[in-house]
Computed example of a mutant assay.
Amino acid sequence: MTEIRTPRLVLRRWLDDDLAPLSEIQADPAVTENIDDGRPYSLERTAEQIEVWEEEWDEEGFGMFAVELLGSGELAGAVGLSVAHAPGEVAGQVAIGWRLGRAFWGQGYASEAAHATLEFALQDRGLDRVVAVCRTGDRASVNVLGKLGMRAESTARHPVHGHEVTVFGIDLTQYEA
């Protein structure tokens, strides 16, 4: 079982007990406004998503981690890697992404978890490049991406949802652990 510990967090695979707290996090419109179509997730949609994430772990050797607070064991959200499907210019590349409950915003958890995930991708999994697809105007995510050393490379229109996205990228030669 893949697990990463940071000073304040545990990044780990998904457990059955994670469904209810993640569903509560993803039912918050503020959490989902910059994800996919922006609509909150139902319990069923969250369960399907965890299943897809776990399948990706089994097939690819990476996926979305559950983000747990080290001290309390509370689920803060998700961070991890997935194979990008859109926009077309990054389809098939490995993308980093995250979502944390609103109670965990502004405390550096997203940056801490994302940094550990990027290190995992480039050093442990041997990837040469990682991308991120961010809804244009999502300042909080852009801030985290900047802390990771990722740079904006292009903009595109999301082929399914129609909103503008910015593509960020970093390769192994640009990465500073």
Rank of each mutant, 00 (worst) to 15 (best):
T2P: 15
R5E: 03
R5M: 08
T6M: 09
L9Q: 05
V10I: 11
L11Q: 08
L11A: 12
L11W: 01
R12D: 02
R12T: 05
L15H: 09
D18M: 01
L19P: 09
S23E: 09
E24Y: 11
E24P: 08
E24F: 10
I25E: 01
I25Q: 02
Q26S: 00
Q26C: 04
P29K: 10
P29W: 10
P29Q: 11
A30I: 12
A30C: 07
D36Q: 10
D36Y: 12
R39I: 04
P40S: 00
Y41V: 13
S42Q: 07
L43F: 06
L43S: 09
E48D: 14
I50N: 09
I50V: 05
V52D: 11
W53Y: 13
E54N: 13
E55H: 09
W57S: 02
D58E: 15
D58A: 15
E59Y: 04
G63A: 13
F65K: 03
V67F: 12
V67H: 07
E68M: 12
L70S: 15
G71V: 13
S72R: 14
L75N: 10
G77E: 07
A78M: 10
G80N: 03
L81T: 00
S82P: 00
S82E: 13
A84R: 02
E89R: 15
A91M: 10
G92D: 07
G92P: 00
Q93M: 13
Q93L: 13
A95P: 01
I96G: 00
G97V: 07
G97R: 12
R99K: 11
R99V: 09
R99W: 15
F104Y: 11
G106Q: 03
G106P: 05
G106T: 04
G108Q: 03
Y109M: 04
A110Y: 06
S111C: 07
S111G: 12
S111M: 06
E112Q: 05
E112F: 06
E112N: 10
A114F: 08
H115W: 04
H115C: 05
A116T: 06
T117R: 13
L118Y: 01
E119S: 15
A121Q: 02
Q123M: 04
D124Q: 12
R125D: 00
G126F: 13
D128I: 00
R129K: 08
V130I: 07
V131K: 06
A132Q: 03
G137D: 11
D138I: 02
N143I: 05
L145K: 07
G146V: 10
K147D: 05
L148M: 03
L148C: 00
L148K: 01
G149Q: 01
G149A: 07
T155C: 08
A156R: 12
V160H: 06
H163I: 03
H163V: 04
E164F: 03
E164G: 00
V165M: 06
T166N: 02
V167R: 00
T173F: 10
Y175P: 09
E176S: 13
